[in-house]
């Protein structure tokens, strides 16, 4: 479900000014279609997260982009890891078990 800027700001409990600022700083990346900004579920969850970080965890405007960047890199790395393990899971035996054993640090005698 896509929602507009004002609706999302009101729904989550941030000011339109704050939210516009976050979009300008590319902390939130809604897609634009014609004159409308479209916020999907990921965008809205991210806005809530930025609000939590700012209000509850006292992460200020200077630190926020650093935190978000590291967080996004972490998620990208996790996605790559899942992709690799997905490939391992598709391997036949005995290769699959051998790799998993090596990952867990057990040695074969």
């Amino acid at each position: 479900m896509n929602r507009s800027l004002h609706y999302v700001a009101a729904e989550i409990g941030v000011t339109v000014e704050d939210l516009s600022g976050w979009i300008e700083r590319r902390w939130v990346l809604p897609v634009r279609s014609g004159n409308n900004l479209a916020f999907d579920d990921a965008d809205r969850a991210r806005i809530r997260m930025i609000l939590d970080f700012h209000r509850d965890l006292a992460i200020d405007d200077e630190a926020m982009p650093v935190v978000l960047d590291l967080l996004d890199r972490l998620h990208a790395a996790r996605a790559q890891l899942r992709a690799v393990l997905g490939a391992v899971a598709a391997l036949p035996e005995p290769e699959q078990s051998e790799i998993l054993r090596k990952i867990q640090g057990e040695t074969e005698q």
Binding site: D40, D41, A42, R44, A45, R46, R48, M49, L71, D72, H75, R78, A79, R82
Partner: peptide
């Protein structure tokens, strides 16, 4: 409602 639920997927 947490971002982490979406972070790894296509969205």
């Amino acid at each position: 409602s947490f971002y982490r639920s979406y972070a790894g997927g296509p969205q």
